[in-house]
Design a protein around this nucleic acid. Structure first.
Lengths: 278, 278
DNA sequence: CTTGACTCTCCTGTAATGGGAGACCGGAGA
DNA sequence: TCTCCGGTCTCCCATTACAGGAGAGTCAAG
């Protein structure tokens, strides 16, 4: 009453290649209903057609096999839907980034080389609330908004910063972050000196002295996805003047998501520390 | 006046990892401005920042390095834009397929198991105009519409088919097409017997005798992306009744794109040849 | 001269298969 | 019974665009 199918028959029914079915077996995503202990022949059950087709759909959506396995073993519909929704969210974000890339590409190809103005300026030392964590480039955006939230919460805590923020939010990027795509990033917001002996309640937000620095500075206009253009212009100017570089690169978010959703209105100051050699 | 940059400096300016830059060098996508013949150290030029950023954008769009190389060596803007447009077209199609997959997935997960009705019927032999080619699963949709066009053109040719088509368009899929994702597919349209000795002008369209066959048949409703559901149901029924399988599987496009753009209205008959063993 | 930061090449690993080799299995015809 | 052919098995290698790390050479400053 439950006829078993050979891998070839099952392949025809599900439109999954034999190779793929064997791979799904190895990965534990779709186990054959039976395996002949002597010949190793796989046998599938007609009831496995539907799961196999679900797998096909999820693969079409680019979901990795590991995630598919979790989805399939999820007992209840709720967990299952949550996993799928999470994946669709990732897809959506990826699509948004694709569109941003297209826009950035157009600007880069058609653009008349509008070099942002670069100035040399000394940034004074400040006291700041800060959070630091090792972050990879892929997680930067997510981590950034989390960090911003944490800093905002800390700011709002009574007694921490009597005068509120004394400047825009910023972040420190060690040089090797751009080379390795992964390094410890520090997000901060400058505040007036807090009452002596004051202790922060939360463990992640610390009080940090951001040292003074002399830097080449340019303001990036537009979405952060395009910020490499400003880095390039800044780096070119720095290189042309033959000036040494030292210390982490800083970004100051003059206008960001808290101010407006319209990314084209965003303004970010990039400060590239230098010390004059000439 | 043209200062050379180390790979690390260039990495910081472009937000491309050192590893990626070396890889681009190996692939011939972005050659360093100079290479020290003794140490092998790569040196980059400030003018290479913009090309590097273009590469970054194209990679964000998922364009393979081979294509990026072609784009970069393209001398004129026109060729360049054509390449990019072609890639965006591919992306768009992929997006459409993603959406279709989401819809299909919902139907599969939420669906109340609406099994299409399966009947056993004998299909009589017919004479048909046919085109055949080895096609891989990925190219199936494209090839299908091309083949349909070729067949329509042949039909419209004077004297070929005095009575016009005598039935819907169809296609033959050898069993191993679904297992290997690549096999020789035959698209055909039945016609009345043409005048004796008549010769077709075009080389690709041939006259073919489609043999009679006894088959299990089900009608698939909706887009072809979901046709594996009908294959599964059909295969399950065939397997449950313990019936042998022989010959290529056939699809008849009762209602397709020529009739309506609305894919949910499409109707495709799937005929799975069987010969009764009981 | 040493140290530490930087760079080099080369090898391995990733994810999800495809391609192919060489061997085994099962049913059908001679 | 032998043989043939198609189906299946397990391995191993290739793909893409890098990342990670080993081991060694290079550069500039103290």
């Amino acid at each position: 009453m439950a006829p078993l199918l050979t891998i070839g028959e099952f392949s025809r029914m599900t439109h999954l290649s034999v190779k793929a079915l064997r791979h799904y077996h190895d990965m534990g995503v779709l186990e054959p209903a039976a395996i002949d202990p002597f010949t190793g022949y796989r046998s599938y059950d007609a009831t496995q057609v539907v799961p196999a087709q679900v797998i096909r759909r999820l693969r079409d959506l680019g979901m990795p096999l590991d995630s598919i396995r979790s989805v399939l073993v999820a007992p209840d519909l709720e967990t299952r839907n949550r996993e799928i929704a999470a994946h669709l969210g990732r897809m959506e974000r990826q699509l948004a980034q694709t569109q941003a890339s297209v826009a950035g590409l157009r600007a880069l190809l058609a653009g008349p080389e509008v070099r942002p103005a670069v100035e040399y300026r000394k940034i004074p030392a400040v006291t700041a609330l800060a959070v630091a964590q090792v972050v990879s480039a892929a997680d930067l955006a997510t981590w950034g908004s989390d960090a911003l939230g944490a800093l905002s919460d800390a700011l709002a805590t009574d007694g921490v910063a009597p005068g509120g923020a004394t400047g825009p939010f910023g972040a420190l990027f060690p040089g090797d972050f751009f080379e390795l795509e992964r390094s410890e990033i520090t997000a901060f917001v400058p505040v007036g000196s807090p009452p002596a002996g004051f202790e922060l309640p939360d463990g992640t937000v610390r009080l940090l002295e951001i040292p003074a620095v002399e830097a080449a500075i340019a303001v990036h206009e537009g979405p952060l996805d395009d910020i490499d253009r400003t880095y390039g212009a800044l780096g070119t100017v720095v290189a042309e003047r033959a000036i040494g570089v030292d210390g982490p690169i800083r970004e100051y978010y003059l206008i960001g998501f808290p101010e407006t959703e319209d990314e084209s209105k965003h303004r970010t100051e990039v400060a590239w520390p230098v010390f004059l050699t000439s």
